[in-house]
Design a protein around this nucleic acid. Structure first.
Length: 681
DNA sequence: GTTGAGTCAGAGAA
DNA sequence: CTTCTCTGACTCAA
């Protein structure tokens, strides 16, 4: 099958295609259901305003400059591809309209996702083959795969409306969830294969113990389905849906998203042949810390060109040449083209020991040929960060590390409490306000665990046969695995593999030890959370730790009321959280239907119609201060572990994006209740 | 700390 | 103009 015939939806096009659904019923894709009926306006794009009058600065170094550099520049480099883009006819953004649109979109999102749930998006249980995932080859088959090459069309995406921003954020999140879910599935398959005595991906007879990297395989699966983003144009400047500060764990993921298209090289650029001015143009760089001559001061960065190094040793052995990415950076300087900068920072929270932060846009302001520490010639580029951007992810990361050690040194004022839980949480929860004199969260009793009504839990502790009989950590086939319809919900480091209607963790009636990997959310906080005051969202919550997507954050606590009690209390106008109102965002986590169209979200274990509510008016925990968003970074997963009454599950909150330190956590509450208004005003 | 298989895109040849 | 082959870039996992 030719890729051109592929029936899978292609998110790489900026507007949702009116995909002909030959063989795949697109209607069951939850994501597509949530899209607004009308096409989101495509981003306003325009030709790059290349300063025609800017003469190329005289090359200070006439090294081995490629012929193109030496030849005189055309007065106006004709980036013709950009020129045919829709001309800018943008009105100045109207804040009022933006707010209305945001509200409209929130409601549309709410309506569509909730109606989707009611209309039976949850289709029959996946076959074991489908849920095992990697054993099934994607439908298109890998035979005649022909990857669509990267386009050279150079565009800059600017002034996205609120609605577009949400649209692209969701698009990017979906791609990232697909990537991470595939990777997790492949890893799990590897482990199973190894447990069975088969080795790696080579299958039978493979001798090599080394696994084929799951990140590469996940990217390849997505590539076969044309699911890589932003391949139809080369974007200069910000990538829609990716914010300054976003965190990534794999180089391949950067390629999949189009943030940086080079698997290994640190400089990504449009080649001379592709650019109509005949010159290469750099668009992004990665500062990995691998080059000894780099000098990184944050806002000011001296970056070293690539090349000249021995492939095996990380030593320079010949002079660098002004070609490829090196020349492209120089050309970007001449034209004033902004460069995306991605920094690698060491982190124990990362599966690979480091994390890549998108730190925003820089401009090259100077370049020269220098003698590196090795004694060989290296090209150096002085880059300045463009002002007015969000704080850098790498800076926030370091600040948060310092705050964990000694908060008062870096924030002498503003802390109202270092632990509003008063020791009730496993990790302290700080309270910080440097905005006004509100101290509201201090006035409530901190309740780390919800209190269930006795009628709800009486006799429900050992319901359904009590716990498992495992003496060691639980494994596939044990009673608790069966409860979870044959598979455990978490991977070995405690990340949720995919969202489910309900997760059964091992509990007090299980024999397995506390180290059992099926005990995750019951153990409480693992991240340093902070309740903080902001001018935009009132009270909010942020983390000092980098939170990997899929990991547990905290429980939603309070005094649990029965249906009857809820009716009475809400009549009194009290603050009630209704679990049934959270849109089923868990459907998205683990969704790989873009790659495996046969994938459907699990509909087991079953959960009851939830009629209870949580009263947070007297006692509450940190979860109560999460801000609302229709494009949230956390979601609710229902979990049972201590009692087994399916009408009263715990509301456990998990990350659905990688959440960088100091970024606000946001959740989709569904309807905005009066209490949310009260809390966030 | 060391090692090697693995990827895509660029560059140039066919 | 398209298609191919070679090369360079260095990451991730053991």
């Amino acid at each position: 099958m030719e890729m051109g015939m592929d029936t899978s939806p292609s998110p790489s096009s900026s507007a949702p295609s009116s995909a002909s659904s030959d063989s795949i019923d697109l209607n069951f894709l939850p994501f597509l259901k949530r899209e607004p009926k009308s096409e989101p306006a495509s981003p306003e794009r325009g030709p790059l305003p290349l300063p025609a009058a800017t003469p190329p600065p005289p090359l200070q170094v006439q090294a081995q400059a490629a012929a193109t550099a030496a030849s005189p520049l055309p007065a106006t480099p004709d980036l013709s591809a950009a020129a045919v883009m829709t001309p800018l006819q943008s009105l100045p953004p109207n804040p009022e309209e933006e707010t209305l649109l945001a509200e409209y979109y929130r409601l549309a999102s709410l309506y569509l996702s909730s109606s989707a749930g009611a209309a039976g998006v949850i289709v029959p249980a996946p076959t074991p083959e489908a849920s095992a995932g990697a054993v099934v080859q994607p439908g298109s088959g890998s035979a005649a795969k022909k990857r669509r090459p990267r386009s050279s069309e150079l565009v800059r995406v600017s002034s996205l409306s609120v609605r577009d921003q949400i649209y692209f954020r969701d698009l990017v999140r979906r791609a990232r969830i697909t990537f991470e879910s595939l990777r997790a599935m492949l890893l799990r398959d590897d482990e199973r294969a190894e447990a069975l005595g088969l080795t790696g991906v080579g299958g039978f007879g493979a001798v090599d113990r080394r696994r084929v990297r799951a990140d590469l395989r996940a990217a390849a699966l997505m590539g076969d389905r044309d699911l890589w983003l932003n391949r139809d144009r080369r974007i200069v400047g910000p990538i829609p849906g990716i914010s300054v500060g976003d965190a990534f764990f794999f180089r391949m993921e950067l390629c999949v998203l189009g943030l940086h298209g080079q698997v290994q090289a640190g400089i990504d650029f449009v080649t001379a042949g592709q650019s109509s001015s005949g010159e290469p143009i750099a668009t992004s760089i990665i500062v990995s810390g691998g080059y000894e001559d780099d000098d990184d001061r944050g806002d000011v960065l001296v970056y070293t060109g690539h090349g000249g190094r021995d492939p095996n040793l990380h030593k320079h052995c010949i002079d660098q040449k002004l070609e490829g990415g090196n020349l492209a950076l120089e050309r970007s300087m001449a034209y004033g083209i902004e460069i995306r900068v991605i920094r690698a920072v060491k982190s124990k929270r990362s599966p690979i020991g480091k994390v890549y932060f998108y730190d925003g846009l820089y401009k090259v302001v100077d370049f020269w040929l220098d003698r590196g520490k090795s004694g060989f010639g290296v090209y150096k580029y002085k880059m300045l960060r463009i002002e007015g951007q969000e704080a850098m992810g790498s800076v926030n990361f370091r600040l948060a590390e310092q705050l964990k050690v000694n908060a008062l040194t870096f924030r002498p004022t503003g802390y109202l409490s270092f632990d509003i839980s008063l020791g009730r949480e496993s990790i302290p929860v700080a309270l910080y306000n440097d905005v006004d004199d509100d101290r509201d969260p201090l006035l409530f009793e901190y309740l780390a665990r919800p209190i269930f009504p006795s009628s709800a839990v009486q006799g429900k502790f050992a319901e359904g046969g009590g716990g498992c009989e495992c003496n060691e950590n639980c494994s596939i086939g044990c009673y608790c695995a069966q409860r979870n319809s044959g598979e455990f919900a978490y991977d070995k480091v405690g990340a949720l593999l995919r969202g489910k209607p309900l997760v059964y963790e091992c509990g007090p009636y299980c024999r397995c030890p506390p180290s059992c990997p099926n005990r995750v959310s019951q153990k409480g906080l693992k991240n340093r959370l902070e309740v903080f005051r902001s001018r935009e969202t009132g009270w909010g919550v942020r983390s000092l730790d980098l939170i990997k997507a899929g990991t547990f954050i905290c429980e939603f606590s309070g005094i649990v009321l029965t249906h009857q009690q809820s009716e009475i209390m809400s009549a009194n106008g009290d603050c009630l959280v209704r679990p049934s109102r959270f849109p089923p965002r868990w459907l998205d986590w683990g969704d790989v239907s873009d790659v495996y169209p046969e994938y459907v979200a699990p509909n087991n274990p079953a959960v009851a119609d939830l009629k209870f509510s949580i009263d947070v008016s007297r006692a509450r925990n940190v979860a109560c201060y999460f801000s609302h968003s229709c494009s949230p970074n956390v979601f609710v997963q229902f979990v049972l572990f201590d009692h087994y009454n399916i009408s009263y599950p715990h509301l456990m909150i998990f990350a659905m994006e990688n959440i960088p330190p100091l970024r606000e956590l946001s959740i989709d509450y569904g309807m905005i209740d009066e209490w949310v208004g009260k809390l966030t005003m």
